[in-house]
Nucleic acid binder design. Structure first.
Length: 831
RNA sequence: GCCGAAGUGGCGGAAUGGCAGACGCGACGGUCUCAAAAACCGUUGGGCAUUAACGCCCGUGUGGGUUCGAAUCCCACCUUCGGCACCA
């Protein structure tokens, strides 16, 4: 359906052309682009800078409704800040490296670069159709050498500083994507991208030493982020304090110790066994000849199990004895050493002291293998009987030698002191966070700038040779090896140190490397001698307002904070955090269900076709609070469409006759009140991202203006002011229609370069207040009283009310409560 | 299992200690029309009661509590969603 083009009768009797977004929206998009009204200077006298950043998209092909939901409200907020008088930088770019391009290349035999760049061009067009106020002159696309050059540069700077390193170990391998992935990219034991269960694989990989900043990353007092995200990051970093304690195994492996980590050193006298992770380096040495076969088969089994199986809490706790024994230094007891796959090689020391009485897992394990269970922290009122389950809570030390009788919290400290005094171990802090694995065995990413030489070893590519270009052509059929290995022209090179034959590193970088610093690049587009200009960065960063989804809580948002701290320590930036404020929008659904191309589609194209971009923008903002997501219904959008049509009609009425009529004082006051109170409400709500209630306030205002027009008695000047406010306040949400109306009502410059109207609270205040009168908390009457009514007068008026008196009969009045401007509550005792 | 958020009309939601349901959708009735759509006007939480009017009772997941007064604060539980999860 197209919108009718015929003239429309308005209540004022004037005929005007109909609101036709299909005509005005492309017109203004073009005019804005030509005039460059959103191009931003680094500084404008008298204006404060405001960096409004949205998480940049992956160029997947088309701008879908999820993009609209993320970017249109973000743009409205940026526009709001601009109209508040800030010099606003609102850029957009493309996170253009990554697997989909490569997979499309494999599936459809297209070039990943062409595929990506054509998607970029297409999405840029579609973003313009949204009417966003992007400064495209600062656009960046991460798959270009101008950008990834600096990924390589930072990689080398980090390497010099010891923040980049290569290590061999068990990595998470996604069998579908044919690459290793970082811990943060494993969700429920499966690849975050494709959902395939990950397996473990031993291979040398490059890491960024994010764990160096674990403690600093826990400090988040100075950033205004949702508590939820801070909590997720805290949990992910997972700091826990405890004690590393060595168990002597001299008898079986001379000179070796089993280092165990525990947060419950108060239970150390209850150790009845020690368990090693299957991957633990001492397993081989400690395994006794009679046990060799059983242990080897157990370890091989554990290795081949998937990460999901390995880490399932449902999994039965199994283990095999190594035949060796370890000595607990606290009581010199000899306890068996077992291998069990419920112990993770990657956490703590990869070995645990088994205290079945006070750890659920150890308890189950001990029961299964008939190992002794000794209570050393007595539950309150414990009678010495056997436990039915592990006792985890604090208690009193028993069977703990000199520590008997102490509360376990104290025991913990005293035992730790003794261990440290005797050199048996030391207090330790461990983290769940592990270093960021950045190597990817894929083609479409930033080449890692490293050369391997038989003579000189691992040699960084000299800075002057950067960027190491990603070759145009590659055979990227996934083979489990990096595609670049198949490209001899890329692979074979000469050593920059000795000039001899050498080969290049063929892995590429995780794409989260690209997004860790892109906000800095937006300040310095086109910079070719350095990644960004420190002077320009200083003007814009830390980002004032970052907006995006919560799914990046422990990926991008954590990596980016790490990058900032690393860059600060290398002298590139002066601040501690990249993003001062963060707002997370929720998830858009439709008819209570997840939107899905197949089963529950919601394509923006027909919606724009039928209603226009402004209506779509406003509807998405009207659905509900942005941070709680929204539930789309096809019929609901009609309400917004009707409202914008009313705004269209209202704003263009010929008000010239108004001045001829006799103005009515109360009508004029009502008009002023509506104008000023709406301005205050809308400005307050937009500041807090409450677009839904801001639009509701504007709808109420529109309805009120219609009533006041019909009732008459208002002056032409007052009306013009009231209508101008409507246009200005709606402009951030509905940029096209307001721009068109602004021009039609005689303005020659863009509404988007105007300031928001001011307001006066005293003009916004009502002259009379509606006071609720309650008897025993139940509403019995409402009274219209002067705004400055005294407490005594309000109570007297309340008591005089006939409706109230009816409820006062037959009881004793014991209390009178007055809440100024709100209510009177008369408290009665019956009888 | 642990941590977090949320439960309000037929629907999206508003109200964060003071008139529950703003604003909008939908529905119903009306105006206009040959008719329909659009547009506009009116009604719309449930129940009781009435010719009509004045009214009354119930109601924000469940149960308790604090308070003159609770959707809002506290305790317990239920449900849904999100995150983490053999973390020693």
């Amino acid at each position: 359906m197209t919108i009718a083009k015929q003239g429309q009768q308005t209540t004022s009797g004037a005929t005007q052309d109909r609101y036709d977004p299909g005509e005005i929206e492309p017109k203004w998009q073009q005019r804005w682009a030509e005039a460059g009204i959103y191009r931003v200077e680094d500084s404008v006298p008298g204006k404060e800078n405001w960096f409004a950043l949205t998480m940049f998209p992956y160029p997947s092909g088309d701008v879908h409704i999820g993009h609209w939901f993320a970017y249109a409200p973000a743009d409205a907020h940026a526009r709001f800040k601009r109209m508040q008088g800030f010099n606003v930088l609102h850029p957009q770019g493309f996170d253009a490296f990554g697997l989909p391009a490569e997979n499309a290349a494999i599936a459809r035999n297209v070039d990943p670069r062409e595929w990506t760049l054509s998607n970029v061009a297409n999405m840029r067009r579609q973003f313009n159709r949204m009417g966003n106020s992007y400064d495209w002159s600062r656009n960046l696309v991460t798959c270009t050498p101008e950008y990834y050059h600096w990924n390589q540069y930072f990689f080398l700077k980090f390497l010099e500083a010891g923040l980049t390193y290569r290590a061999s170990g068990t990595a998470n391998w996604c069998p579908t994507d044919q690459t290793t992935i970082a811990n943060e990219q494993v969700k429920d034991g499966a690849c975050e991208r494709c959902g395939t269960p990950v397996i473990r694989r031993e291979m040398p990989q490059w890491f960024f030493r994010i764990t160096k900043y674990a403690d600093e990353l826990l400090e988040m007092d100075d950033i205004q982020w949702p508590e939820k995200i801070k909590l997720m990051q805290r949990n992910w970093i997972g700091r826990s304090t405890g004690v590393t304690l060595g168990f002597d195994v001299d008898e079986f492996a001379p000179g070796e110790k089993i280092e165990t980590f525990t947060t419950r050193i108060d239970t150390v006298f209850g150790v009845t066994f020690v368990v090693l992770a299957p991957e633990h380096p001492l397993v081989e040495k400690l395994t006794q000849p009679g046990q060799r076969e059983a242990v080897e088969s157990y370890v091989n089994n554990a290795r081949s199990a998937s990460e999901i199986e390995r880490t399932s809490t449902e999994r039965e706790k199994t283990g095999v004895p190594t035949g060796a024994y370890a000595v607990n230094p606290l009581n010199s007891e000899r306890v068996p050493v077992l291998v069990g796959d419920y112990v993770l090689a990657t956490y703590g020391t990869g070995a645990v002291m088994g205290v079945p009485a006070h750890d659920e897992r150890d308890f189950v394990f001990a029961k299964k293998y008939g190992l002794p269970i000794r209570v050393v922290v007595a539950p309150p009122g414990w009678d010495g009987s056997e436990l039915d389950e592990a006792y985890i809570a604090p208690g009193t030390q028993v069977n703990s030698g000199e520590f008997d009788g102490l509360p376990s919290a104290e025991g913990m400290e005293h035992i730790a002191d003794k261990i440290e005094a005797n050199g048996w171990g030391h207090r330790t802090v461990t983290y769940h966070l592990r270093d960021w694995l950045i190597s990817r065995q894929r083609y479409w990413g930033t080449p890692i700038p490293i050369i391997y030489c038989d003579n000189c070893g691992t040699v960084p590519v000299p800075e002057k040779d950067l960027p190491v270009l990603l070759p145009d052509e590659a055979n990227f059929k996934p083979t489990g090896q990096s595609p670049l290995t198949m490209d001899p022209a890329f692979l074979n090179t000469t050593c920059p140190t000795c000039g001899g034959d050498a080969t290049r590193e063929t892995d590429t970088m995780d794409t989260f490397v690209d997004s860790s610093w892109y906000h800095l690049r937006f300040t310095s587009p086109g910079e070719s001698e350095q990644p960004f200009s420190p002077e320009r960065v200083k003007k814009w960063v830390p980002v004032h307002q970052y907006m995006g989804g919560a799914e990046h809580a422990v990926m991008h948002l954590l990596y980016s904070r790490f990058y900032n701290k690393a860059l600060r320590d290398l002298g590139f930036v002066k601040f501690d955090e990249p993003y001062t404020r963060l707002f997370n929008q929720g998830l858009l659904i439709k008819d209570h269900k997840k939107i899905s191309k197949r089963s529950n589609p919601l394509n923006p194209e027909p919606v724009i076709e039928r209603y226009g971009a402004d209506t779509l923008r406003c509807y998405l903002m009207f659905l509900g609070p942005w941070d709680q997501g929204g539930d789309w219904s096809d019929s609901g959008i009609n309400g917004i469409s009707r409202w914008l049509n009313r705004v269209w009609d209202l704003s263009q009425r010929d008000a010239s006759h108004l001045s001829k009529a006799q103005p009515d004082e109360s009508a004029m006051k009502a008009l002023t009140r509506a104008a000023h109170s709406t301005t205050g409400r809308v400005v307050g709500e937009l500041a807090e991202f409450k677009f839904n209630t801001a639009i509701a306030a504007l709808m109420e205002y529109t309805n009120e203006l219609n009533r006041l027009w019909d009732n008459g008695g208002i002056s032409s000047a007052e009306w013009q002011d009231a209508v101008e406010r409507l246009m200005l306040l709606a402009a951030p949400m509905a940029p096209h229609i307001t721009e068109e109306l602004w021009e039609r009502t005689g303005h020659s410059s863009s509404i988007h370069l105007e300031s928001l109207p001011g307001w006066d609270d005293s003009l916004a205040a009502a002259e009379t207040l509606t006071i609720v009168v309650q008897v025993n908390g139940k509403v019995r009457d409402t009274l219209d009283l002067p705004a400055d009514v005294s407490e005594d007068d309000a109570i007297t008026a309340a008591m005089d009310s006939e409706k109230v008196q009816r409820h006062l009969e037959g009881g004793t009045l014991i209390k009178k409560i007055y809440v100024p401007g709100r209510l009177v509550n008369l408290v009665m005792r019956p009888g």
